[in-house]
Design a protein around this nucleic acid. Structure first.
Lengths: 180, 180
DNA sequence: CTTACCATGTAAGGCGTTACATGATTCA
DNA sequence: TGAATCATGTAACGCCTTACATGGTAAG
């Protein structure tokens, strides 16, 4: 019943659209996927190796660039594996917000500390939100260039909706906090 | 730089309000904290043991109940440890939404599969949201009984705000999906 | 010429889950 | 009397991060 490792699936998902190096996969994780998924090199490279062994991807050396790049591409088997995962229902969505934990236990620290955490959260979210608005604009402009863009846009809009809600909550919460 | 384990802090936070058994701690995690944190028995009991060794909690046997309960209480040292953590800035808030990943890669599976995931998500969130509304009502009614309740209410309202935003997104997303 | 970025990988170890093991009590 | 819940714990193992280790290239 081994809680299936999702790393394979994220990587295959990225490769389903274009061939990439491990380094590029990491970059995608840190940008496009960053607010709902993440991964380190220490998990990306070993996963790529094992997927190569299992025939889910192929590897080709890129010597052109002068750099020693390993470019990975998805195979037919990999595409089937990905589709199979896509069809299955979601196992779990996880949220681990340390911020909320600090607020939940805020009574121990008091109002001021709690307000500081809310303000720090607000600042962080505002920054993220403006990034998302930029991405939304870019995606909307090239929506018809590629059928994947519609799906990317959906997740960006999810981020915009939720981050906007977070900001509303921050203001309400600061008000509630200061009330007697 | 050991990415500080938060399990201690959650447990200490719960114990800062009332003495509890490991089993009761698990229940709190599954109800009050469940939408922004989680833990299994396999992590709760060992953490309690190590905190006992470190003098952050004390243990007392409850023989009254007929059951063999181990009731844990926070110590002064534990309270200081908790406060110290509360004062420090948040390290990271993590979101790992498999649902969003399936949607991000939705182009590979197609519209119908994606719509199914959105609908399943919507149903789950609706259920969670109505639970949160109940809790909100209860907390509002006994807001002045205990100073901790204000903080609990803040997190519940966070949940309500974000889940409501999720639902709005679901409807928008289903519309966007079906559009050409 | 040196800083930032590109690029790949390994090793150790932390954290936490799942599954296993056990048994008492409550309630229908 | 059997199912659900209360109650505690361990063992194995999976997953992923951090830190380490190495070296090339682009740009200022």
């Amino acid at each position: 019943m081994a809680s299936e490792k999702k790393m394979d699936c994220v990587i295959l998902g990225l490769l389903s659209h274009e061939s990439l190096t491990g380094y590029e996969i990491k970059k995608r994780m840190d940008t496009s996927l960053n607010y709902f998924w993440g991964a380190s090199f220490g998990s990306i490279y070993p996963t790529l190796s094992s997927m190569l062994d299992n025939g889910l991807v192929t590897k080709s050396d890129d010597t052109d660039s002068g750099r020693n790049k390993q470019i990975y591409s998805i195979t037919q088997k990999g595409r089937e594996y990905l589709l199979d995962w896509l069809k299955r229902p979601v196992e779990k969505d996880i949220m681990r917000y340390e911020t909320l934990m600090k607020i939940f236990f805020g009574n121990e620290g008091g109002e001021e500390i709690t307000a500081q955490h809310i303000n720090a959260f607000k600042t962080k979210i505002q920054r993220e939100l403006s990034k998302l608005f930029c991405i939304e604009k870019i995606l909307q402009d090239c929506l018809n260039d590629d059928s994947t863009h519609k799906y990317y846009l959906l997740t960006v809009q999810f981020g915009i909706k939720t981050y906007s809600a977070y900001l509303e909550w921050c203001d309400d919460a600061l008000k509630t906090l200061s009330e007697k």
